[in-house]
């Protein structure tokens, strides 16, 4: 099944927040632009939404010398190996592709939104009109034809690149080594490794909306990995118990039925 695990590297130290990726994504995936208003930020739409699968997040921070820094982060599906969304998806709409990425069969999505609650990065977004959930599929329609995802293709500065998992992880660590300081690789050490990884210039907590320690929520693990088998056991136990009860102890029959089998309205 697995052809080759792909990893997309987002090097935030090369990103100029031109948002070519945000538009290229919409163009390739035929997603509309919707009416917005300026809410006091360059970041628009304010969050990922059903028609916005990738988004540049802008946040202004002042460092310890009171010098301003403007941090840009391209947000979007991280394509986890241990993907909570795939775990909880009741219909199999969310699935792991042969590249290790998380694809989505939109025709199978039933709009239950369970993935939205499960995703540690809060990526899947719901559309009321189609009653379905949407998210980046790393341009599965392109990568299966050996094309780069639309966002990577559009990136002018080389902030985005895609390739074989090991090579990309090495590239990320080489880059971080060169950058020094607080620079770090984000993604490969979480949820069994994401298929989108970042080179961050600053510590993860400096970035808007980026969990410091993303993990499959305990509620999902508790249910899917522990309680689900136990509950199956319990249900099976009830069935088996009833059967055993019937054959060992026997039914609790009224006395006159034992005396007169013709009575009792079955």
């Amino acid at each position: 099944m697995k052809k080759m695990e792909l990893v997309k590297l987002i090097d935030t130290t090369r990103c100029t927040a031109c948002r070519g990726c945000q538009v290229a994504c919409k163009q390739w995936n035929e997603l509309p632009g919707l009416k917005t208003k300026n809410w006091g930020s360059y970041q628009n739409p304010p969050d990922l939404q059903w028609n916005t699968w990738t988004l540049i997040r802008f946040n202004e921070v002042a460092d310890k010398d009171n010098r301003v820094k403007w941090l840009f982060r391209k947000d979007g599906c991280m394509h986890c190996t241990d993907a909570a969304c795939v775990k909880v998806c009741p219909s199999g709409a969310l699935y792991h592709t042969e590249y290790g990425t998380v694809g989505i069969h939109h025709e199978r999505c039933i709009g239950c939104k369970e993935c939205m609650a499960a995703c540690p990065f809060e990526i899947p977004k719901y559309d009321r009109d189609t009653d379905k959930v949407y998210k980046c599929d790393l341009c599965y329609s392109r990568i299966k034809d050996d094309q780069q995802p639309a966002c990577v293709k559009s990136c002018p500065t080389g902030a985005l690149s895609i390739g074989a998992k090991d090579a990309m992880i090495k590239k990320a660590y080489d880059r971080v080594k060169k950058l020094g300081g607080d620079a770090n690789v984000y993604g490969d050490q979480f949820v069994d490794g994401t298929h989108v990884i970042y080179v961050l210039q600053e510590k993860p907590e400096m970035y808007d909306h980026l969990p410091k320690h993303p993990r499959v929520p305990f509620s999902v693990v508790a249910w899917k990995d522990f309680l689900k088998p136990i509950s199956l056991l319990a249900a099976g136990g009830v069935l088996a118990g009833s059967f055993l009860h019937y054959i060992i102890h026997g039914p609790k029959t009224p006395d006159d039925i034992q005396e007169n089998k013709t009575q009792g309205g079955e």
Binding site: S242, P251, T253, P254, D256, I257, G265
Partner: peptide
């Protein structure tokens, strides 16, 4: 289970509403 084969005579209570005195007694 208990409303049917586990306890014969119970089921009618929820179908017709009528049960035997023997079942009630038991």
């Amino acid at each position: 289970y208990l409303g049917t084969i586990g306890s014969p005579g119970s089921a009618p209570a929820m179908f017709s509403g009528w049960v035997t005195r023997a079942w009630l007694l038991k």
